[in-house]
Design a protein around this nucleic acid. Structure first.
Lengths: 246, 246
DNA sequence: CCTTCCGTTAGGCTC
DNA sequence: GAGCCTAGCGGAAGG
């Protein structure tokens, strides 16, 4: 496809807020928070309906260069070259793409209003524990959700065990880090200040990083192995029974 | 395009390790570390030469669903539906795309061996300071780059001031957090243990988060405002003069 | 292989 | 709007 023809099609696609898909050979320059240069090569250029711009190389998950939604897109021919510029302010950044050859260029008006749902988040792990407190241990009773721990922040879960001891629970959907242990300890410090009793500390996660496991022992923090996946199964079962979690 | 025809073209594209670009209507299911569902809608499906898979909605910088490089891709027709599955293990995850309609489907063998260069990273901030140590203060002399601070990790920069005091410098390309202050303090603790002298602590960043600014004062950490952009200008000037930084 | 840290992080949520 | 935190973070570097 001739570059002049491509320029017109690109302009029209951007003007009509279409999804523009261009495959061709191009150079890319970026200047803003950082700056980068990418020599000529064959790539995919994507301009979305909201002004997002993505330059994808033939490999890799991530775009090599991009501009986030809301960028102002400008298509021009200058000295026989097809130039696509995407600007944003705050921070002021510019992405300049010099298209040398166009193998394919199409614009689409796509309709996508479908709902996206994501499960097995940290929040769902908490819901599973509330549904089945014995996941922590027999006799555990949750008392408060997201209780404030002074200036340390909010505890994931606060409850009592079968002996009446206070229990502070920190939930992580990924392997626990020493940072998570510290966080739990800081909560417990606040609770002790406030209530005058030192609670048990339980870290709930699918696993523990090695560095964190040392600290668990050092600070007397207990660990319960629980994965998001298991929680999801529990919730599914729970929903199947009465569906009260919606 | 008929789904059967698309399936054949997809299979061939994946087999020949091409970049496959499909625009059409599809549902998406993901199950792995988390799980997600996305109802039918019009989207762009990208399958890269290295087994990366990206599903892009018409808006937004990020893919709504994806699979990283190295995924095993499987294209099948089942009950009249075109199904693309991308699996990975470790962690075990599966992405399933049910294609209902195909508006466009092309496969490309792209050649892209161009070099990518990026400037104004944290590393370049350090180079700027090494080039102009007075950015820290008059009389500052850098001694060591990435000096080990016991088990605390590696200091960004280690030097002495005009009075002969040791100076530990931590560089951040973004606003400094209280985490960064803690990191700096832990380095200094190790240095003090090792050398028996307590160094000055200087945090270099374009700004400080509010929470961190309290800690700066509390722990006697000094702050120098320096942005990646300014560093880039300094390096450019330095290169312009003699280009010895290559 | 695992751990740690950086990113033009982006995106979401709170204040 | 600014600040702060999380992510199916991804990716790189180091051990």
């Amino acid at each position: 496809m001739r570059l002049e023809e491509a320029a017109e099609k690109l302009k029209e696609g951007v003007r009509s807020r279409s999804l523009v898909v261009l495959v061709g050979s191009m150079e890319v320059f970026y200047e803003g928070r950082a700056s980068s240069r990418l020599g000529e090569g064959e790539r995919l250029l994507l301009i979305k309906q909201d002004g997002s711009v993505l330059v994808h190389r033939p490999v890799g998950y991530e775009p090599i260069n991009w501009q986030p939604p809301g960028s102002l897109i400008d298509v021009t021919m200058r000295d026989g070259a097809l130039i696509v510029e995407a600007r944003r302010m705050n921070p002021e950044e510019i992405l300049r793409i010099i298209v040398k050859m166009v193998y394919s260029l199409e614009a689409y008006r796509l309709e996508d209003s479908a709902e996206f749902t994501m499960h097995a988040t940290e929040d769902e792990m908490k819901k599973a524990i509330l549904l089945e407190p014995s996941l922590i241990e027999d006799g555990f009773r949750p008392i408060e959700d997201e209780r404030r721990a002074g200036r340390a922040g909010f505890m994931d879960l606060f409850g009592v065990d079968s002996s009446g001891n206070l229990v502070v629970i920190e939930i992580k959907r990924r392997n626990a880090t020493s940072e998570d242990v510290k966080q739990l300890i800081s909560y417990v410090g606040e609770v002790e200040k406030e209530l005058g009793r030192r609670p048990r500390m339980i870290l709930v996660a699918p696993g523990v990083q090695r560095s964190a496991s040392r600290e668990l022992a050092a600070y007397g923090v207990e660990f319960r192995c629980l994965s998001p996946r298991k929680c999801r199964e529990i919730l599914k079962r729970g929903r199947g029974l009465d569906g009260f979690l919606g």
